[in-house]
Design a protein around this nucleic acid. Structure first.
Length: 113
DNA sequence: GGGTTGACGCAGA
DNA sequence: TTCTGCGCCAACC
């Protein structure tokens, strides 16, 4: 659709909204799906900026299966709680099993791909 | 227009 | 398994 902005940010937002309940995706995965497999840091920046929006940003974690928000101390806690409430299990190391709850990506190729 | 920031990824120790 | 250093890219000021 050319009616919406085709910026990297818009792509990331669209992809995050596609993450199903009870599943999680990694920053690198989102970046790759958005067309920039090496822009994982940019995804992190966008997640921080979109905080407060209606996006399920808590379903986006790093490639190690851990939640991290750097600055804020409470965010990783609530993020983990939100994920656990969706059925995402964390181990003693505060990591989740990406092999079990990892998002397999959109069912169809994205418009920009 | 240019420098700084940042919720990452990967390789090595 | 965990930590550190370096590189990548986009947004912000």
């Amino acid at each position: 659709m050319s009616t919406q902005d085709d910026t990297f940010r818009t792509r990331v937002y669209a992809l995050v909204e596609m993450i199903p309940h009870g599943q999680v995706a990694t920053y690198g995965q989102i970046a790759a799906l958005a067309g920039q497999s090496r822009a994982a840091r940019a995804v992190g920046t966008l997640m921080r900026l979109c905080d407060g929006d209606a996006l399920p940003w808590h379903r986006v974690i790093n490639a190690q299966g851990r939640v991290s928000t750097g600055g804020d101390v409470y965010r990783p806690t609530i993020q983990r709680q939100m994920l656990e409430s969706e059925g995402v299990a964390f181990d003693a190391a505060e990591r989740c099993d990406l092999d079990a709850v990892g998002w397999d990506g959109p069912s169809e190729a994205m418009p920009w791909e």
